[in-house]
């Protein structure tokens, strides 16, 4: 990887009456990156790596991090519609097959819902440790039962990576943001918790080629959900990465960026 500095810009886009914060960098085909339920740090080496090949858009989900909370929002499908709105607003979906979606964890669920709403609109769909499908055997970890720190720690195969990124004892301001994001997650994904019982059926319409990536040690969303996505999507491949948990983009940023880049750019 080159060490060229990537310049990020951010803008605030009014969508459905709420100010949506969107960070943007790079050039090339557009790639919408959707973050986890715990939110996202503003800058990540993983985002930089993607921005070397794509026009990367990283919005904060409505009600998360820097985006305003729409009080009326009630479901993950509502969020998916807001992102369709954002893409339409930016005229990115006028010609089908330009924009690709990359969803991380909870953001993967949003991306999957978006794909079902527009089965041929996107170029590629990448889901990483995505929520959204009900596991048949295991369970999606319930953050309501875990402290802010324990929940995020659970998403790492290697606890040292958590320590390096957040500090062994994250600052209270970080925890408060995790709490705000958790509250927003509860507002839109409380019941059923972290899945949509009809999503599996609806995915059958999606013609978009998909890459499903899972950390082998994901203790937030079981690997069987990755297998479920692979089965439900018509054109999907599953890649399982060793030495990674739920936060694959934090533990294996280079590997994941390479996988994504190759998959999205291939003919």
């Amino acid at each position: 990887m080159t060490s060229t500095t990537i310049t990020w810009e951010s803008e605030t886009v009014p969508i459905a009456g709420a100010a949506l914060h969107v960070a943007r960098a790079g050039a090339g085909a557009p790639l919408l990156v959707l973050h986890h339920d715990v939110g996202s740090l503003e800058r990540l080496p993983f985002y930089d790596a993607l921005a070397r090949r794509f026009t990367v858009l990283v919005p904060s989900h409505p009600g998360y991090d820097k985006s305003e909370r729409p009080d009326w929002l009630r479901s993950v499908r509502d969020v998916a519609v807001l992102y369709q709105w954002l893409l339409a607003e930016r005229e990115l979906t006028r010609d089908p097959g330009r924009v690709s979606l990359l969803g991380l964890g909870f953001g993967g669920w949003i991306a999957a819902e978006m794909a079902t709403m527009a089965p041929r609109a996107f170029r590629r769909l990448v889901l990483v440790g995505a929520m959204g499908l009900k596991p048949e055997r295991g369970e999606i970890a319930d953050q309501a039962l875990l402290s802010y720190i324990d929940y995020v720690r659970r998403g790492f195969a290697d606890p040292r990576v958590f320590d390096r990124i957040f500090g062994a004892e994250p600052q209270t301001s970080v925890l408060e943001q995790w709490d705000l994001n958790r509250e927003m997650t509860f507002r839109i994904a409380w019941k059923p918790y972290m899945y949509n019982p009809t999503l599996g059926r609806l995915l059958g319409s999606v013609a978009t080629p998909a890459l499903v990536v899972w950390g082998r040690e994901d203790r937030i969303v079981p690997l069987e959900c990755g297998e479920g996505y692979q089965k439900a999507l018509a054109h999907a491949r599953l890649e399982v990465l060793d030495g990674a948990g739920h936060f694959v983009e934090l533990e294996k940023p280079d590997e994941l960026a390479q996988l994504v880049t190759r998959f999205v750019t291939e003919a």
Partner: peptide, 9 residues
């Protein structure tokens, strides 16, 4: 919020 977040950890 601050008090409960700190209590939680």
């Amino acid at each position: 919020r601050t008090a409960f977040v700190e209590y939680a950890v």
